[in-house]
Simulated scan of single mutants.
Amino acid sequence: MIDALTLGQLRTFVAIAEAGGFRAGAARLRRAQSAVSHAVASLEAELDIRLFDRSGRRPVLTPAGIALLEDARAVLLKVDTMRARAQGVGMGLELELPVVVDTLFPLPVVGEALLAMHQRFPSVRTQLQVAPLGGPLMALLNGQCALAVTVGDDLNDARLIKEPLGTVAVVPIVAASHALADRVRQRARLRLEDISEHLQIVLSDPTAMSTGRDFNVLSPQTCRVGTQEAKLTLIEAGLGWGRLPLWTVKRALDDGRLVKLPARSLGPAGESREQAYVVYRRDRVRGPAATALRDELLARHSAGGSA
């Protein structure tokens, strides 16, 4: 009977499917392989179906196993969320609040929110890191932070709650000495193919979340860098063009060191706006300081905090 199913059986099923084998699943769960095999066999008996094809060197999900894997994940996520809420009742103040912020998001906004949080909870030590692309989300999923800020809609995970924080202006730029800057000064119409002929400076994802995917990479010739600071330095040196958040380059644009590429294909007057989010785990406890920081970030969005 299905009422006899246990959470342990479901966790074992999911662990084996994700780890790619009974031995790896047992190691992930820190259980004996025989116990893991017995749990899956019991689950299959309860459901009266085969979840894994064991005829090869590695177990492979059957069509029924593939169909039920997402159901098992959904059940476990709801249970973990319920447990987190129960643990959060009467939870004490955090000793430390680790936060990871997308490299595109304006740090002055984060600083204001952290200051307001610190005034309420001065004893909480804050640990702030800045990471591009999948970095903030992966830090949340790995338990390395309690709260994150991310920019863009390309990367998602069902275990995360994303609340909108407004938008971030992103502009394509080159050094004033670059050939594309001459085209801008001559008021020549810039088409996408004109820009893509030149080397593009691209920020690399330090995680595997975007493996096999590129975001806003338009040129066949690229130079990939690990930090936004390196990207800006290479653009200022005249090596190529790239897209950066307006808040980081506004001063250099105003004093003429950098030039914005007003190509309509890259957004109105060359400017696009990326949605920003405050993100946290739905199946983890969010303590008082993390909640306060989340509220402060959202309050700045409500007050018109787009950058």
Rank of each mutant, 00 (worst) to 15 (best):
G304R: 04
G240T: 09
R28N: 09
R273W: 08
V99D: 01
G8A: 04
L192F: 12
L76K: 00
A45P: 03
P268N: 12
A299W: 09
F105T: 01
T222Y: 06
M1L: 11
A32R: 15
T222V: 15
R185W: 09
A188Q: 13
Q119N: 14
H301R: 15
A86C: 12
E112P: 05
Y277N: 03
E296T: 03
T227H: 12
K250A: 14
F52I: 03
L133T: 10
D255M: 12
V202D: 08
M209C: 06
L68V: 08
S302R: 15
A131Q: 10
A299F: 10
L104P: 03
A148H: 01
G152K: 01
R282K: 14
A45F: 11
R11A: 14
T81E: 15
F13D: 04
F22P: 14
T150R: 03
T12N: 09
R286A: 12
V184G: 05
I66M: 13
T6Q: 13
H118K: 14
R30F: 10
L232A: 13
S306G: 09
E70N: 07
P106M: 01
A230D: 15
L61E: 05
R224E: 12
L141D: 04
G65C: 13
Q9K: 02
R50N: 11
A158G: 07
L107T: 12
A303T: 04
V109W: 09
R281M: 04
R120N: 13
G21L: 00
P206N: 01
V99W: 00
P206R: 02
A26R: 05
D254W: 00
V79G: 02
L93T: 11
V151I: 02
T81R: 09
D283Y: 00
R23A: 15
A303P: 09
V279I: 08
V14W: 05
V249N: 01
G21A: 02
A148T: 05
K250C: 09
R189D: 02
L218T: 11
K250E: 14
R83H: 13
L107P: 03
I66P: 00
A146Q: 10
G25V: 10
L93K: 06
L239P: 01
V79C: 07
D182W: 08
G134R: 02
H178N: 05
